[in-house]
Nucleic acid binder design. Structure first.
Length: 256
DNA sequence: ATGGCGGCTGAGAGCCGA
């Protein structure tokens, strides 16, 4: 079972790259964030023509998530965190076989101390509560997506420069740690990885070429499932294409 | 390192992302 996450920063723009990536990598599940497209305009036919199923929860301009899969999702999809009345489309959960897949686009937070920062932290609290409940229901669970949090110093190209900056503040990192404490494992760190491995690079300042990035996209697996994780990686190749997303796909594989 | 890029809207320049 190969599960991946990719913030595409507009599916309208990136659809050809997504189709190419599906053909090349053959994932069983691909979670997309920042599709930025209303459901009525979602390119369902193009994805189905590639041999995949897809479910989506979108809106215009901002946010939007989708789950592309080989096999159809079982049962109804979840599009809202329980207890959070939020028009922003940032969550999509569905079960594939025994595995519950929860695709999230965590709020950016903009700046420590801002209203958006408070929203981010409360959003992460709601996420944690839901994960705790869902783990009782489906012990095999993958929580993946754009977390907008670099959890450790080794996930930041210049930790000193990023100290107290959004994506790397202590409260954000503590919220990420609480997700792990709830029973999740950062699959990327189960394996030896190259130093300075990142999943996002700013479009500006030649950040990708200089590898000045952050690792903010993650595939977290429940402890039951993490035991069956056989690989975890970041695919930097799409980031080097013409007109790329600023994020790279992150991948984890599990034995069934 | 101020913003530097890119996508969006709406038809300007500004918002937002990270």
């Amino acid at each position: 079972m190969k599960i991946a996450s990719w913030n595409v920063n507009s599916l309208r723009v990136r659809l050809p790259q997504v189709l190419d990536w599906l053909a090349a990598e053959q994932p069983d599940v691909l979670a997309l964030q920042e599709t930025k497209i209303p459901d009525m305009q979602f390119p369902q036919a193009e994805i189905e023509a590639a041999g995949y199923r897809v479910i989506f929860s979108g809106q215009n301009t901002y946010n939007g998530v989708a789950l592309i899969s080989r096999e159809p999702a079982a049962g109804a999809a979840l599009t809202d965190l329980p207890g959070l009345d939020d028009p922003q489309r940032r969550v999509l959960g569905a079960r594939y076989g025994a595995i519950y897949v929860l695709n999230v686009y965590v709020p950016n937070g903009q700046e420590a101390g801002s209203d958006k920062y408070a929203y981010k932290l409360s959003w992460l609290n709601r996420l944690q509560s839901f994960v705790e409940v869902q783990l009782q229901e489906t012990p095999e669970l993958v929580l993946l997506g754009d977390f907008n949090i670099a959890p450790q110093e080794c996930d930041v190209h210049d930790p000193a420069a990023w100290e107290n900056s959004i994506l790397f503040t202590q409260p954000e990192r503590a919220a990420f740690q609480r997700l792990l404490d709830a029973g999740l494992v950062d699959t990327f760190r189960l394996f030896e990885q190259a130093e300075k491995s990142y999943s996002w690079w700013d479009y500006r300042m030649l950040a990708f070429r200089r590898n000045r990035g952050l690792r903010i996209d993650h595939v977290l697996a429940s402890q039951a499932l993490a035991k069956r994780c056989t690989s975890a990686s970041i695919d930097k190749t799409p980031r080097a294409l013409e007109r790329p997303s600023d994020h790279a796909p992150v991948i984890a594989e599990f034995t069934l």
